[in-house]
Computed example of a mutant assay.
Amino acid sequence: MKAFLIDRYAKGGALRLGESPAPDLRDNDVLVEVHAASVNLLDAKIRDGEFKLILPYRLPLILGNDVAGVVVRVGSKVRHFKPGDEVYARPGQDRIGAFAEFIAMNEADVAMKPKNLTMEEAASLPLVALTAWQVLVERGGLKKGQKVLIHAGSGGVGTIAIQLAKYIGAHVATTTSTANVDLVKNLGADVVVDYKKDDFEKVLKGYDVVLNSLGKDTLEKSLRVLKPGGKLISISGPPDPEFARENGSGWLLQQVMRLLSSGIRRKSRRHGVGYSFLFMTANGEQLGQIASLIEAGALRPVVDRVFPFENVNEALVYVETGRAKGKVVIAVK
């Protein structure tokens, strides 16, 4: 099958289009013919080698962390899917490979594609929707009437997180640039801070949850908008010891992460708030719940551009500019 691979970690390196063996089908797997995939900054970071300590992939590696397609075969123990089913998924982190004609995934990571979406729209969602769900619903415990700040509201995670928070019934603030103010307002943001004009830490106060996807300065400023007992949840780091334990990291790597996050954890305690790092995990059951919200009209995908399969490298470069509104998608079939 055709696939886009990396043979070695290289910052800014191009992916190689080549032939790769069709994936093996395990007893609990579904084999999916890929119709669409989406491009995430995570793909660039894996290519650059930023995660090689915590995600020790075997090279050569097919990239791609989001997929929508059609089931063509199922393993002997699969009970919830059959050939012909239209599905979408974020593969388990050790089974990525959506930039290819076929992918095999554990059925526990897969859900039926929302009926009202195209393949391209569906492929835009799994990673960012699961991230928003796991930050706001699971880790943040966001409730109706609470206040949440979602940074980078026009990005892939932000566009879904705003909608999910509004569905929950929260008061939603977000940061974005001047060009994207109308977009995030239309998604449901109650307060929009244009970072080119205002400093969010001077405008916002008394928030229950902050979803951070930006750098160190934004992370530390976010402490000052939280109320005592609030939660600062970062998907951009630094990783903390709890994440290291959950990820099965060894003692040495746990100590490295303890050191990397010591500053923000110390400042969080000083402000009387909690800090945690979240690395989204695959979850087909949650994707099923998200699909129900999409079919009910509570959530909608935001797709910036669709690239043809042969232009995966151009799509990755575009994502790295940080200018995409919502998601960038690859049409594979």
Rank of each mutant, 00 (worst) to 15 (best):
K45Q: 10
V110I: 01
A14P: 02
E314P: 05
E86N: 00
K231L: 13
K45I: 03
P301E: 13
K77T: 08
L252G: 01
P56W: 01
D29R: 09
L130N: 07
V193I: 12
L278E: 02
A296N: 11
S76V: 13
K166Q: 06
Y275I: 02
H80E: 08
K147P: 03
L226A: 07
K113Q: 08
A89W: 00
R305D: 01
R269A: 09
Y57E: 12
P239V: 08
V225F: 14
P126E: 04
A10E: 15
L5I: 13
T118A: 03
L127C: 01
I54F: 12
E101M: 03
W133F: 15
V225E: 13
A296V: 06
P241A: 06
V302M: 12
N311S: 08
A122N: 03
P23V: 11
V184W: 12
V332P: 12
G75S: 10
K11D: 14
D66S: 09
K196Y: 12
V319I: 11
V209T: 12
G229D: 03
I290C: 06
A68Q: 11
S222M: 05
A22T: 06
E86S: 04
H271F: 11
Y88D: 15
V32W: 03
V70L: 07
D182H: 08
L278M: 01
K77E: 13
I168D: 09
G141N: 15
E19K: 09
G237V: 06
W133G: 08
K205V: 00
R269P: 01
F279R: 11
K327F: 07
G215W: 00
